[in-house]
Simulated scan of single mutants.
Amino acid sequence: MASAWVFENIAIIVLSIMAGAVFFWISSPSAKQDKKQQLEESLSLIINFVLFIWAGKIVLNIGIFVTDPLAVLAYPSDSNAFYAAVLLLLINIVYKTTRKHMNAGMVLSALVPIFLGSAFSYEFIDVVWNDHTMFWGHLGLLLILLIVYLMWHEQTRASLMGALVFAVWSLGQIMLTFLMPYTALYGYMMSTWFLILVFIISVMVLIYNKKRR
């Protein structure tokens, strides 16, 4: 049943995020109090992101939701809801940075390892538990990014590290689209235009950081 798939996927995502949080805590060189603050801010954004996905699913299916809300809530969110959530999350980060004086660099230094750790954990569970062996390419890409992060994150600014990670991730995912029927993140299929957009934005941030230096 679709509802059973939804609950299973939510459980895997929660476990993956917990693994990502543990990876951040172990790999971060920051003081314990700083790590706690970074983790709290990051988890707050992640919770908002999950809520944005559900909000996006409802808005995109508002006609069905009005007449039969359970029909919408019981079925998996699609990629369009994921894209909407990404946009809303970026707006949320900009708002918190400009209006609430959130330290974007501090939060990004936690979000990047949480993303890498959770995405790797999700793909690992998917390959081992669900026997989706076609995702070995995704798993390999994330393993490379984890190694790159561990090697250079202490010597690299958070914004630069984040841009580098997402540039390599999106480029790797674009390359995988030529070898596989589709590419995904946390179970959501990624369109090529979205990956290209992430790559372009990441490269622009890299260029901006280089000019600032």
Rank of each mutant, 00 (worst) to 15 (best):
Asn80Asp: 09
Ala81Arg: 05
Phe82Trp: 13
Ala84Tyr: 14
Val86Gly: 01
Leu87His: 06
Leu88Thr: 02
Leu89Cys: 01
Leu90Gln: 02
Leu90Ala: 05
Leu90Trp: 02
Leu90His: 00
Ile91Ser: 09
Ile91Met: 08
Ile93Arg: 12
Ile93Lys: 11
Val94Lys: 13
Thr97Asp: 10
Thr98Ile: 14
Met102Asp: 02
Gly105Thr: 04
Gly105Ser: 08
Met106Arg: 15
Val107Asn: 04
Ser109Ala: 11
Leu111Thr: 00
Val112Ile: 09
Val112His: 05
Pro113Met: 12
Ile114Met: 14
Ile114Cys: 11
Ile114Asn: 13
Phe115Trp: 07
Leu116Pro: 10
Gly117Ile: 03
Ser118Gly: 15
Ala119Gly: 10
Phe120Val: 13
Ser121Val: 14
Ser121Met: 13
Glu123His: 12
Ile125Thr: 13
Val127Tyr: 02
Val127Ile: 13
Val128Met: 03
Asn130Ser: 02
Asp131Gly: 04
His132Gly: 00
His132Asp: 00
Thr133Glu: 02
Met134Lys: 04
Trp136Pro: 03
Gly137Ile: 12
His138Leu: 13
His138Met: 10
Leu139Cys: 07
Leu139Pro: 04
Gly140Pro: 10
Leu142Ser: 08
Leu143Pro: 01
Leu146Pro: 03
Leu146Ala: 07
Val148Tyr: 10
Tyr149Pro: 08
Tyr149Arg: 11
Leu150Trp: 05
Met151Gln: 07
Met151Tyr: 06
Trp152Thr: 05
Trp152Val: 03
Glu154Thr: 14
Gln155Tyr: 12
Gln155Glu: 13
Thr156Arg: 12
Ala158Gly: 07
Leu160Phe: 07
Met161Cys: 07
Gly162Asn: 02
Gly162Asp: 01
Gly162Gln: 01
Ala163Pro: 07
Ala163Trp: 01
Leu164Asp: 01
Ala167Ile: 05
Val168Gly: 14
Ser170Lys: 02
Ser170Asn: 08
Leu171Lys: 05
Leu171His: 08
Leu171Cys: 14
Leu171Pro: 11
Gly172Gln: 04
Gly172Leu: 02
Met175Gln: 15
Thr177Met: 04
Leu179Cys: 10
Leu179Phe: 15
Met180Cys: 15
Pro181Leu: 14
Ala184Glu: 15
Leu185Val: 09
Leu185Gly: 03
Gly187Tyr: 00
Met189Cys: 06
Met190Ala: 00
Trp193Leu: 06
Leu197Pro: 05
Val198Asn: 00
Val198Leu: 06
Val198Phe: 04
Phe199Ser: 03
Ile201Asn: 01
